[in-house]
Design a protein around this nucleic acid. Structure first.
Lengths: 140, 140
DNA sequence: CAAGATTGACATTTCAATCTTT
DNA sequence: AAAGATTGAAATGTCAATCTTG
């Protein structure tokens, strides 16, 4: 079934294009993904390990991406009182502001590129991709 | 429409997972993509600029990716007699051999991860992604 | 020992500038 | 000038090892 591989190729191409072309007002695409996940999380915070699982990045990559974001006040750091191993990442006010602006631009861009598709097709696509992502072991 | 952005997030996550987890027998995912496109091309060769357009990489990235592949004999280089600006990338015998092996592994992996989806859903997904990719300006 | 997080070293890819040919 | 390709410099993210805490 060569269609399965075609799916992979399309994903690779779209990710490359998105990472370079999506207009976010000075925010990187990876940063945008991270802030978006934080914004959706309960309490606007997540463990670093959960952020890695949700985004597909490695824990190491999360640490590296967060470092400059923390430095410029987009995210904060909060310890866990009951388990000193974990440190939460919080959505800082500066991050929320930039995110709001970036999301507006991103929504506009998304409407131009995928907004023309039928909603039922989009639903099926989202379900298929979510399912595929769930079948790829994240760790190990 | 937040679903449009969800699509982007799923794409980013899947690309990250694929790049790290797809088993290709020692071949990198990007190399696999490149060899696959060459294999499908007429005459098993493509201009570098077309390879960039098909994969979503920048022309610069293509040059850099091809350099070690050329060195170990996966791809070859062929000038264009009528236009000295272009140089074709050819699928070399070594590349064809590695590709055949990698494709077998990739197909197996793909069957496990997306092979469970209904074919009609896969078709719609492919159409939607191809369409979206086509709406993102490649150059500029 | 396992889980979460980080670090050093390195691989990958982009950006902006440049070169050559049309 | 525009098109195709390449290069120096830098950003981005991985891998394997390590540290700390449970």
């Amino acid at each position: 079934m060569t269609k399965n591989l075609d799916l992979f190729f399309h994903i690779a191409k779209l990710d490359a294009l998105l990472s370079r072309k999506i207009p976010l007002g000075g925010l990187g695409f990876s940063d945008f993904v991270i802030l978006s996940h934080l914004d959706r999380a309960e309490g606007k915070k997540l463990r670093r390990i959960d952020l890695a699982e949700k985004t597909g990045f490695t824990p190491s990559g999360i640490t590296r991406l967060l470092l400059p974001m923390e430095k410029i006040g987009l995210v904060g750091r909060e310890p866990n009182p009951t388990d000193a191993r974990v440190s939460y990442v919080t959505l800082a006010p500066g991050g929320a502001t930039l995110l709001a602006d970036a999301r507006e631009r991103a929504e506009f861009f998304a409407a131009e590129t995928v907004g023309v598709a039928a909603e039922s097709d989009l639903d099926r696509t989202l379900a298929l991709l979510a399912d595929a992502g769930g079948r790829i072991a994240w760790n190990a």
